[in-house]
């Protein structure tokens, strides 16, 4: 009996499986997001306090959720690389980082635009916004470290170490930012509970965004597998030609 991750260890099998899955996931993502947008704009009511700006929530909250989930995925893949030496683990980690960073940026951007009407300013040092900002810095660190190492194998493993260090410290950073925030200002109104009439559209959007993330991640992984294949073939080609030239 092989587990699913073991069976996926073969890149060729991954390419076959993801080739059939990708259109399905992408299609499901589009359907969920379109339905979610319809709900967000035409069905869900305006908030009695925030008015229409509450509609930003339907993209802000899923983006923030994906920002965290993507980092968890990077950490998990890094663990898989360092401990189990799973051949696709680094492909997964490398593919997830830029996508996660993009959604982290979106969470910050939409949060700032949501905050302007609510708080009267684009940026407040709210505990949640600050934590997401730090998460963005962690993503930047991962990307910078990987891009500054030429040896791909080395880059993969060192980035994995950094991702695991980051995920170890993340709860502590979150805790310290919360502490710092309560010390300096009363908590902002963003913690208010979500009204049931908004919960369903939000859930649909969250599912749609998650499916979208998986589709993007799968596509990025496929690209990465291809890139490595091209690289290996080029190396083999050069070696063969050298051998021919030597004869």
């Amino acid at each position: 009996m092989q587990t699913l991750t073991q069976r996926l260890a073969n890149p060729t099998r991954f390419m076959q499986l993801s080739g059939t899955l990708l259109p399905i996931v992408a299609g499901a993502a589009s359907v969920a997001i379109l339905y979610g947008l319809y709900l967000a704009f035409f069905v869900s009511p305006a908030d009695y306090q925030q008015g229409e700006t509450v509609r930003i929530m339907y993209i802000h909250v899923p983006s923030a959720w994906l920002a965290m989930m993507a980092y968890a995925l990077v950490a998990l893949s890094s663990f898989g690389l360092l401990v189990f030496r799973h051949p696709l683990a680094d492909v997964s980690a490398k593919a997830a980082v830029p996508i996660g960073a993009a959604f982290t940026f979106l969470a910050l951007f939409t949060g700032s635009l949501w905050g302007k009407p609510m708080w009267g300013t684009y940026w407040v040092w709210d505990a949640r916004l600050t934590s997401v900002l730090v998460l963005f810095f962690l993503y930047l660190g991962l990307m910078a470290l990987r891009s500054s190492l030429e040896d791909e194998n080395l880059a993969a493993k060192l980035t994995a170490v950094l991702a695991l260090v980051g995920v170890t410290l993340l709860p502590i950073i979150k805790f310290s930012v919360d502490w710092w925030n309560t010390l300096h200002q009363p908590s902002t109104g963003m913690t208010s509970t979500v009204d049931p009439s908004m919960r369903w559209p939000l859930l649909v959007m969250a599912i749609g965004f998650s499916l979208l993330f998986f589709a993007l991640h799968m596509k990025a992984m496929r690209n990465e597998v291809l890139r490595r294949r091209v690289k290996a073939l080029r190396l083999a080609d050069v070696a063969r030609r050298d051998a021919v030239a030597a004869e």
Partner: peptide, 23 residues
């Protein structure tokens, strides 16, 4: 240790380490 063999070591070190110093 992470940036030992990296290009642009110094700047990279700051980017990697400073967020971890927040607590």
């Amino acid at each position: 240790a992470l940036t030992l063999k990296a290009r642009r070591g110094g700047l990279l070190l700051a980017l990697v380490v400073l967020p971890l110093y927040i607590p």
